[in-house]
Design a protein around this nucleic acid. Structure first.
Ligand code: SF4
Ligand code: SF4
Lengths: 148, 148
DNA sequence: TATATTTAAGACAGTGTAGTCTTAATTTGG
DNA sequence: CCAAATTAAGACTACACTGTCTTAAATATA
């Protein structure tokens, strides 16, 4: 898996939130049910996103989490960096510790290109972009056929 | 990490072997020292490659492992599939279990392309290709500066 | 104020990957 | 045949990632 399971859950939750009103808090319980993710586990993941300033949380009745910025201003990369860190975009394909340019591993060129492509994709897609696709009902963020 | 550590070790060991004579067996002890990989762990990894028919092993003095086919005929993909399996080239970017084309996750297009690019790179590079780069002494397969 | 709702925090368990160690089997060479 | 070298096999340990559970803190509303 290219992203950790934790990160996949975080992305899917963020997309669920982005497909709903920005003004309301969405309860984690609800997200966990809709996306079929363990409630407690998801709580911890969203706490990370809250600490990192990507989400805002609120306790008590009608509480939950919501996006800290507009969905147009949050990229997938923001969430991936918050949860998995930058490793995917910096690590060596062969697991070498030090990547000296000028004396790199033999996959240098190809891998560097792939890493760049990957980063560009995640950086160029905002939550709003994907939320739009999801709302069109052609795309889904759960193994269930329908997610409301 | 895009490949498991086990797979990185397997690839690096295969590249080390490919940079040496095809006719001789190379001892696992030597590979582990040159590449700074735990001997016993590497033994198990190379056993996998032997089981899968990518390597041939031989016990006793002057024993070791060697490539079962010519280095020109073994691709990186062969080794990755043997160790990590096909998941990297088939799994969903968001971790969904089922990937219905026609109702996929919202990263469908982009991710499918990246997966294809990745597979093409690994499939188009043979051990011989990379061994050539390594022998030119510009590239390395260890954190050490020199690997003989 | 009391109760219900909801996130926060942290302890804890399960699982899989990574790594270590011991013993067995095979082969060579003296 | 015997000793040394080397892979095979499997038990075992260590650690990180995933997931569960319990208790605390904050908030709304009746
Ligand atoms: S250049 Fe080579 S050594 Fe450096 S990160 Fe890329 S693949 Fe790894
Ligand atoms: S199309 Fe979408 S759902 Fe299917 S594997 Fe690709 S990313 Fe995953």
């Amino acid at each position: 898996m290219i992203l950790s399971k934790t990160c996949d859950y975080g992305l899917r939750a963020a997309l669920y939130i982005a497909t709903h009103e920005r003004e309301h808090f969405v309860s984690i319980r609800r997200i966990s049910e809709k996306l079929q993710i363990s409630f407690h586990f998801l709580t911890k993941i969203l706490q990370i996103l809250t600490e990192k300033g990507i989400m805002i949380s609120f306790r008590g009745p009608n509480g939950g989490v919501k996006l800290a910025r507009k969905a147009e201003e949050i990229t997938l990369l923001d969430i991936i960096l918050a949860i998995d860190g930058p490793g995917l975009f910096t690590d060596c394909a062969l697991g070498l510790e030090k990547c000296w340019e000028g004396h790199p591993c033999p996959l240098h060129q190809e891998w560097k290109q792939i890493r760049t492509d990957l980063k560009n994709i995640f950086q160029s897609k905002t939550l709003a972009d994907l939320a739009f696709r999801i709302k069109s009902d052609t795309f889904r963020i759960s193994d269930l056929a329908v997610t409301t």
